[in-house]
């Protein structure tokens, strides 16, 4: 595996292009995420946030540009997908827990199957990551027995168990009530405090402002404005001004 000197970004996109048929979804996107940094991707629906995030974990193949993630050249056709995905954790809006497995089995599956971890060790790990998200008591429950917020926290724990170097979150609270949203956001805050590198697509502007080291505002497939969280309160482009002005900036 390639080494990753601390000066190098964990994730870097350079001039990334991506089209779906005639629709140009990413039109020269560039940004980088340093170790321990939290980056929030914001923008209107359809601006390409999810696509950009999915390109990082190669759920979409790019048409042009360069993506380097933890030393993996993701834009290359010969990228080692399974090595890449051991370094990257991804959590989706719809949780996607495996319904036929208990929470413990959901968590231990990948460490055992992919890393060859011993069952007993994986079970200890499951307890540890569940404690991290405040769900120890749900070890033997099935996903359907959990609330949406609990399922999402379990999905985060499942991802954490692979000990990724960077976590990707795509609107992970969008399907949740405000109350459940806040319990998930607390988990993310704790991860940030622990120094986890994260890229998150979010509509929770107040939260992004509080937690993100950097904001990337996407508009029509381009990085339209980027900077520290303060750009949300004093945007420079009319598009971001309008975006944060349309009721998106609630706490």
């Amino acid at each position: 595996m390639q080494q990753n000197p601390s000066s190098e970004p964990i994730v870097s996109l350079r001039d990334v292009q991506k089209s779906f048929g005639p629709l140009r979804v990413l039109d020269g996107v560039s940004f980088a995420v340093q170790r321990g940094e939290v980056l929030a991707l914001i923008g209107r629906s359809g601006s390409g946030k999810s696509t950009a995030l999915r390109c990082i974990d190669r759920f979409e193949k790019v048409d042009g540009g360069e993506i380097v993630v933890c030393g993996h050249r993701v834009d290359r056709p010969d990228v080692d997908l399974r090595a890449l995905r051991q370094d990257v954790g991804i959590v989706f809006q719809s949780y996607n827990l495996f319904p036929h497995l208990t929470i413990e089995q959901n968590i231990t599956l990948a460490p055992c199957a992919v890393k060859g971890m011993a069952t007993a060790q994986a079970r200890d790990l499951a307890r540890k990551v569940l404690a991290q998200v405040g769900l120890e008591e749900k070890l033997h429950a099935y996903p359907e027995q959990l609330s949406g917020g609990q399922q999402q926290r379990a999905a985060i724990a499942r991802s954490l168990a692979m000990q990724p170097k960077v976590m990707l979150f795509d609107e992970i609270t969008s399907a949740l009530d405000p109350e459940l949203t806040s319990e998930v956001l607390k988990v993310i805050e704790q991860l940030a405090a622990d120094g986890m590198t994260m890229v998150m697509v979010t509509h929770e502007m107040g939260f992004a402002k509080g937690i993100a080291d950097r904001i990337v505002f996407m508009h029509r497939g381009k990085v339209h404005e980027t900077g520290p969280a303060s750009i949300l309160t004093s945007p420079t482009t009319p598009e971001l001004t309008q975006f944060v002005g349309t009721g998106n900036l609630k706490s």
Binding site: D57, F59, R82, F92, S94, N96, F98, A113, V114, S159
Partner: peptide
Amino acid sequence: GQIEAAEGLALSRLQIYWHI
């Protein structure tokens, strides 16, 4: 989404068929 979640956890195609 089930398959994508499994892919995201670095499971192989065969493992995904078998476990998921």
